[in-house]
Design a protein around this nucleic acid. Structure first.
Length: 113
DNA sequence: CGGGTGACTTCCC
DNA sequence: GGGGAAGCCACCC
């Protein structure tokens, strides 16, 4: 577990755990992961975490708002292929969030849950 | 402490 | 649908 110089766990740890918690066949957004990690607005740090752990995390399960693939070049293609391989549906080049967006343990809008 | 950077997000036209 | 701007946070120099 990565820690800060102060000794307390950094957002890295929270973000890391959040990304790891995304089950196969589901996806989430940078913002949602940041929220689930307890750091709303830290979407950019999610990118940082993914980069730091590129290869250790299901990075392909993290997409941009509206299920858009933000990666460039082959990376973007690979992400899409990986998601499709997991059964994630695409429409018009973007992920069908409707039913594929992973809902973290009661973090987003209260709704019915 | 300041400046630049990044797989972001939201608001407006 | 595309472009511009502001907000956000941590890493690196």
């Amino acid at each position: 577990v990565a820690r800060n110089q102060s000794g307390k766990p950094s957002m890295f740890s929270a973000i890391y755990a959040a990304v790891e918690s995304i089950p196969r066949g589901k996806v989430s957004t940078y913002g949602a992961v940041a929220r689930a990690a307890g750091h709303p607005g830290a979407a950019r740090q999610v990118v940082w975490a993914l980069h730091t752990c590129h290869g250790r995390l299901p990075w392909h399960r993290v997409v941009g708002a509206n299920g858009r693939i933000l990666l460039r070049g082959e990376a973007g293609l690979e992400q899409r292929l990986r998601l499709q391989a997991e059964g994630v549906a695409f429409s018009g080049g973007v992920v069908v969030m409707e039913g594929h967006e992973f809902q973290f343990r009661s973090r987003r809008a209260p709704g019915k849950g």
